[in-house]
């Protein structure tokens, strides 16, 4: 069993070694459930999302929740201070988290957060980008691909228009950089999934 659960959606990376794994997992679940519910509430407000079949809504949310959370909580990773803030509000230094076993995933998340912040998106742009991220999540479980792709195209077009209005000479570069964030998020999602799979629960 592992002694640490290094995820900022937890209250702390430290786990009581005397607690049964099931209890640790349930507490972790209680910690991140509100954030997942917020992602669902956000998804419901994306124009056109509720018109997709329930199966496809669930598929996109299952595939894209981590990616949306990564974007929404990017500011928890503070590169200037070299810290990560957990849900309890307590900050842990990157050095501490690395000593607890956090490796490539933490480094990649930090790099992603820093580059996203550098794009200086306003609130509307960030919201639209987050919608694009969700609808662009892995489509392998989707039944009605045409509907999802039509919604994806519509949202990407809207994001392009918004960025073109706001970023002057850097508009095209900013938009391209945003689109390149999608495969980066997919890669982070895959790394995160591997971490989850390696975390075994023994009831």
């Amino acid at each position: 069993s592992r002694a640490y659960l290094v995820c900022p959606m937890n209250t702390s990376p430290y786990v009581d070694p005397n607690k049964p794994s099931q209890e640790i997992w349930e507490e972790f679940s209680m910690s991140f459930t509100p954030a997942v519910r917020e992602v669902v509430e956000f998804a419901k407000k994306i124009p056109g999302f509720r018109d997709l079949s329930e199966h496809d809504q669930v598929s996109l949310l299952k595939a894209g929740t981590f990616e949306v959370l990564m974007v929404r909580f990017a500011s928890l990773f503070n590169m200037a201070e070299q810290t990560v803030t957990f849900l309890s509000g307590k900050q842990y230094s990157l050095g501490t988290l690395r000593s607890l076993g956090a490796g490539e995933l933490l480094n990649s998340m930090c790099e992603f957060s820093e580059k996203l912040a550098a794009l200086r998106l306003n609130q509307d742009e960030m919201s639209l980008f987050t919608a694009v991220v969700l609808v662009s999540a892995d489509h392998s479980g989707i039944q009605n691909l045409n509907s999802v792709e039509a919604l994806q195209d519509k949202l990407i077009w809207a994001l392009r228009n918004l960025v073109m209005q706001n970023h002057g000479d850097e508009s095209a570069t900013t938009f391209t950089k945003l689109l390149l964030k999608l495969p980066e998020l997919r890669s982070l999602n895959n790394m995160h999934s591997e971490e989850l799979l390696s975390f075994k629960v023994h009831p």
Binding site: S29, V36, V40, K44, Q57, V58, K62, H192, L197
Partner: peptide
């Protein structure tokens, strides 16, 4: 296939949150 989303109970949380909206709809 071991699905991380199911491991976490993610699908259950997602379904409940989606269904919540249906319950709030007036008849």
């Amino acid at each position: 296939y071991n699905d991380p989303a199911s491991n976490l109970g993610l699908e259950d949380i997602i379904r409940k949150a989606l269904m919540g909206n249906l319950e709030e709809r007036p008849d």
